[in-house]
């Protein structure tokens, strides 16, 4: 029996290498066009996390934990939250909390609709890396439990 942490077979790994970037790109598309069509920061963030989870399930947890451990994911999550708060406080300088300080722009173009686009990006970072840190903790916990079982 092979070690569980080394991931799945060669076929799965090859397919993963081809598809992960496409999934991540779709998440970014959904986030950046949130004010022109269905989607937004919540859906885009979770799609970006699903691409990370795809890597974790195919290559084993050690491949990802070496690059992003749960501390870095937590720091990025708080960065997203602070970014959203910063947008709100920048509105305070021009008038009220959450005031639209960027202007409306031309309707039906990407750089329009004021604070909706930067707020979508902030929420994508917040939701995405929050879910990633929780998932990493779950996986580390269950693998550690297996090690304890082996020792006993």
């Amino acid at each position: 029996m092979k070690d569980k942490n080394s991931g799945m077979t060669l076929i799965v790994k090859t397919v993963t290498r081809w598809t992960v970037l496409l999934i991540m790109l779709y998440g970014f598309y959904i986030t950046f066009f949130g004010h022109l069509g269905p989607g937004g920061g919540f859906a885009g963030g979770i799609i970006v996390v699903l691409s990370f989870i795809h890597i974790i399930l195919a290559y084993g947890k050690d491949f990802v934990v070496k690059k992003i451990n749960e501390n870095i994911a937590g720091i990025l999550e708080t960065t997203g939250g602070l970014l959203f708060l910063t947008i709100a406080i920048l509105g305070l300088f021009t008038g009220i909390f959450f005031k639209d300080f960027l202007g409306k722009g031309k309707v039906f173009s990407i750089f329009s609709a004021g604070i909706i686009l930067p707020a979508n990006i902030a929420i994508m970072i917040k939701v995405g890396f929050g879910m990633l840190s929780a998932f990493l903790c779950l996986i580390l916990f269950s693998s550690q439990q297996e090690e304890n079982k082996k020792k006993e």
């Binding site: 937004g40 919540f42 979770i46 939701v127 879910m131 929780a134 903790c137 779950l138 916990f141």
Partner: peptide, 24 residues
């Protein structure tokens, strides 16, 4: 409803975490 769904997911994660601790 859009925000309620995402909150539901995070609450589910919290419940699963507590259940795993109880199992341990």
């Amino acid at each position: 409803v859009l925000t309620s769904i995402v909150i539901g997911l995070s609450v589910t994660i919290l419940m699963v975490a507590i259940a795993l601790r109880i199992y341990e």
